[in-house]
């Protein structure tokens, strides 16, 4: 087996990997997602619903704000995937994810 050849292949792979990482690296202006990340307090945002799942006592809508994933717990409101909604409420972090507990949800 040609070890020298395979070493060259792996070096070429490493170089192309770095190029891909550099070219397709997402924006660096994102908030940390760990426990120290900022996701708290009163918020008012407009966003498109990217998906909806059924929870035991309501619906959970997934939205994105500044490319950050957030979950909206909708106790009463009914939304569908693709809806544009305006939410006011409180945001806080559970299990490393940002949750919004809305006080008011409006369809736009």
């Amino acid at each position: 087996m040609h070890f020298a050849l395979l070493t060259k292949v792996s070096l070429a792979m490493a170089a192309s990997g770095i190029v891909l990482i550099y070219l397709f690296s997402p924006s660096q202006e994102q908030n940390p997602l760990g426990l120290a990340g900022g996701c708290s307090g009163q918020i008012a945002i407009e966003a498109n619903v990217s998906s909806v799942s059924v929870a035991s006592d309501g619906l959970i809508a997934t939205i994105y704000r500044n490319k950050s994933k957030m979950f909206v717990f909708l106790k009463d409101a009914l939304v569908q995937e693709g809806d544009k909604i305006f939410i006011t409420g409180k945001a806080s972090r559970f299990s490393n994810q940002c949750w919004i507990f809305p006080e008011r949800v409006e369809q736009r």
Binding site: M13, G17, I18, L20, I21, Y22, F24, P26
Partner: peptide, 17 residues
């Protein structure tokens, strides 16, 4: 969030090598 598949491919190529 919105990571590109090519970003992931880059990580796989680099880390494998």
């Amino acid at each position: 969030q919105s990571e590109s598949i090519f970003f992931v491919l880059g990580i796989i190529l680099f880390s494998s090598a």
